[in-house]
Structure formats: structure tokens, C-alpha cells
């Protein structure tokens, strides 16, 4: 099985549990803490945890992207937004609504978990993974950056350019939105 190939050592296992538990705890802090600034700091911790998971699964380039865009850019943007719209969150929401909302979220989580546990993952595994080819897959996992760049600039170059145009349009739109009209 490929999972044994990726996660054979104890170190990887321990770091997976540490990273995932700290990610979940900081995500809980994000949605629970009243102070928006502290919540944004915990959001940065969550992003760091996701970057660690990317590294664990052999996607180093994605981890770098995650660090640069989420930890570097998006969190700064969010902190700026919090500082510019400084306002203490009023918690006059009724108790009934909060219980209802947490019931909805909990129900969604239980539904997802029941779907995950009821799916037979081994069936998919044996169908798509001949046992003798797992070593090759692990080898490609370890060095994915050259293939990634080749793919991004040949096969998916149209989507790549369109995403660039989309980013340009978003930046121009954001500038036009916040500009003071004389």
C-alpha cells in the first residue's frame, strides 16, 4: 500500500498527529475567540499547519505556495482589514440561534464522517493500485516540482494565463472599489 510507503517511519506519524491536532485546535480558536486580532493570529497557525501537511505528503512546492500566499499575503490582508475596521464584536446573538447553528455544523460533520467511514477505501485501492507499481509512485511523489512546472506551462497553460488575468481583474476591481470618488 502506498500509505505505508509514504508514512513508514514513526517520525512522520508523530508529526502528522501533532500538526493535525494543533491545526484543529487553532481552527476552533479562530471560530470561538471574541477578539478578532487574536483569531487572525490563530488563523495563521492553521495555515502553517496545512503547510506542514503539504510537506508531509511530498508536495513541497505547494507548502512554499501556502507559506507565501496564505501566511505571507492573505493573513497580512486580513490583519489590515481588522485594523481598519476596528470594532468589538457584539455578542448579542440569541442563545437559541447559536445552538441551532452549532447543531447544523455538527450535523454536517457527522454526515461527512459517516460517509467517510462507510466508504470502502480498500476496494478503490486494490482496483487502481497494482502492488508492484507502488514503489514508482512513491518515487514520483518525492520529486514533483519539475513535472509540476512542465504541466503548468504546457498542458494547463490556458488555465494558468486565465488565472493570471483573473488576478489582475480582481486587483483592479479592488482598487476601483476602495478609491475615493472626487
Amino acid at each position: 500500500m502506498i500509505s505505508q510507503g509514504i508514512a513508514s517511519s514513526l517520525t512522520v506519524e508523530i508529526s502528522f498527529w501533532v500538526i493535525s491536532i494543533s491545526t484543529i485546535l487553532s481552527a476552533i480558536a479562530v471560530v470561538q475567540i471574541k477578539d478578532l486580532f487574536r483569531a487572525s493570529l490563530f488563523l495563521i497557525l492553521t495555515f502553517l499547519g496545512v503547510a506542514g501537511l503539504f510537506i508531509l505528503l511530498g508536495a513541497e512546492f505547494l507548502a512554499g505556495i501556502q507559506l507565501m500566499i496564505y501566511v505571507g499575503a492573505i493573513s497580512v490582508l486580513i490583519i489590515f482589514a481588522i485594523l481598519m475596521t476596528r470594532e468589538i464584536e457584539i455578542s448579542n446573538q440569541s442563545h437559541y440561534m447559536r445552538i441551532l447553528v452549532s447543531m447544523v455544523a455538527l450535523g454536517f460533520m457527522l454526515l461527512a464522517i459517516s460517509l467517510i467511514t462507510s466508504t470502502d477505501w480498500n476496494l478503490i485501492d486494490s482496483r487502481s493500485f497494482p502492488q508492484n507499481q507502488t514503489d514508482e509512485i512513491i518515487a514520483t511523489v518525492q520529486n514533483s516540482i519539475p513535472t509540476l512546472s512542465k504541466m503548468l506551462l504546457t498542458e494547463y497553460v490556458l488555465a494558468f494565463e486565465m488565472v493570471g488575468v483573473l488576478l489582475l481583474a480582481a486587483v483592479l476591481g479592488a482598487l476601483a472599489l476602495v478609491r475615493e470618488k472626487k
Binding site: 481552527a27 479562530v30 478578532l36 454536517f108
Partner: peptide, 28 residues
Amino acid sequence: LSAILFSLGLYGVLARRSAVLILMSIEL
């Protein structure tokens, strides 16, 4: 892990009232 994080984000979007925190939950 993905299901738990997604549900936490859903809770944040539905329960919090600050628009900035709703954005943060969407990022989650």
C-alpha cells in the same frame, strides 16, 4: 481532518457576525 476543518469553517460562517471573521472562516 478535512471534514472537521470544513465543519468548523461552516460554524464560523453561520455563527459569527463580523464580516471579516466570516471571510476567515471561508479561508478555513
